[in-house]
Amino acid sequence: MIEARNLSKTIGKKKVVHDLSFKAGLGKTTVLLGTSGSGKTTTLKMLNQLILPDEGEVFIDSIPNSSIPPHQLRRTIGYVLQETGLFPHLTVEENIGTVPKLLSWKADYIRKKTLELLEQLGLKEERFLKSYPYQLSGGQKQRVGIARALISSPPILLMDEPFGALDPINRNSIRQDLKNLPQFKKTCIVMVTHDIQEAYELGDQIILLDQGEVQQIGTKSDLIERPNNDFVRNFLKSQSLYLRFYIKPLSLYFHQFLEKKPEDTWVIGSLPDSESLEKALNLFSSDRKDEVLAIKSTNLETRFTSFKHLIQLFGENGL
């Protein structure tokens, strides 16, 4: 678990971060959200001492960062950059093996873990191992970057705009692959983004920053339903309707779904009721009445709903 206490940083004459405190827990994703110049990247880099805070301290499992040599600290913290930062002179395999080598792992074990991770990230062909970064597409590079950050199963993963340079299709598919990684649920993730949707897609906790000051720290619904101030309200305004789909779990409507699949319809997929309304709505290819979705509750009961029905229920239940 990471705890940041009263971090401040001035670069030149500008206060980039001012008196920032937060906690990020294991298995949770904390998103640092804000426009450029808000201090979110500086905050992230203070967590692994790439930037040293002027004031304040970062604790990892209650141990202050300043008590550990920086290079040793960083070996336990995964790091993913927007530009990937892959080493151009090393192959994919050597890139991914960087941290394990620093930790003196055995070669066999490094290779086994590398193959395993690449497969989970959709790069299972062996030819990738011997490829150099310039031979990969943007999406493939970022997958390798993620694999390099995660191979040593660090308890903490820091990501600086990891999908910023990717096209929407790649961005989405990498997000899904990342979410599906077994490690994802066991790692404390802190991610920087300026993309509100991405924050809602991946974040459990969102820290909204402006000009180095915290505007609000809270859950997705906190920000949209109980904004601290006008800045938060305005920041989310343009997408507020869509963002509400993220904060409504399907379980909210479960008792109103159909118990039996209507005739002349076909099931396009199934979701647990813990998923959000946004996820469900996105599965439909159109509003045709013959498409239905199967929803499973926690006690394994299955019910059915259609696009039109979901929208109707959302409307009836209010924002």
């Binding site: 790439l50 960083r74 336990t76 913290i77 790091y79 930062g85 960087t98």
Partner: peptide, 8 residues
């Protein structure tokens, strides 16, 4: 930056 962040 990546090299430093990897713990070199």
């Amino acid at each position: 930056e990546a090299a430093l962040a990897m713990g070199m």
